[in-house]
């Protein structure tokens, strides 16, 4: 019985992970793909690990620890990937409505310069 519950958790997690994979294929541009990947893999991983806890009750603390690590690092990697994609000017889908970041970068007055942390002088970033 307990193993059945665990299996259901793992199955639900697998469904979310599959959706993440499908999202990567179907979404129109890099940013929306990162979105699909981040959210669905986080919940999918959590469910799979929770299901594993039903199979191996002795691992429960380690699994909680792993869940926390996934929860904290997955969004950070999505943040780094999307920021890098934006910095090398990866094109956005034509359905895009607004781009506040480009406005603020172009205006330059409101946003304080942060030197090297922002990816070098503005001239360099037009190269791509």
């Amino acid at each position: 019985m307990i193993e059945l519950i665990g299996s259901l958790f793992i199955l639900a997690g697998a469904v979310f992970l599959f959706s993440a994979g499908l999202g990567l294929l179907r979404m129109p541009d890099a940013y929306t793909r990162i979105q699909a990947g981040t959210k669905a893999t986080t919940l999918g991983n959590m469910l799979v690990l929770a299901g594993l806890a039903f199979y191996h009750p002795g691992w429960i603390f380690k699994l909680i620890l792993v869940i926390y690590f996934v929860l904290m690092t997955n969004p950070v990697s999505s943040h780094a990937l999307s920021r890098a994609a934006y910095r090398i000017r990866t094109p956005m889908t034509s359905a895009t409505m607004a781009d506040a970041l480009a406005e603020d970068d172009a205006g330059g007055d409101g946003a304080p310069p942060e030197g090297s942390a922002r990816g070098g002088p503005p001239g360099e970033r037009t190269g791509r």
Binding site: R26, P28, Y31, T93, T96, A102
Partner: peptide, 9 residues
């Protein structure tokens, strides 16, 4: 897929 993405503050 019918979405309207964008960057906001």
């Amino acid at each position: 897929i019918d979405i309207r993405p964008g960057i906001v503050r």
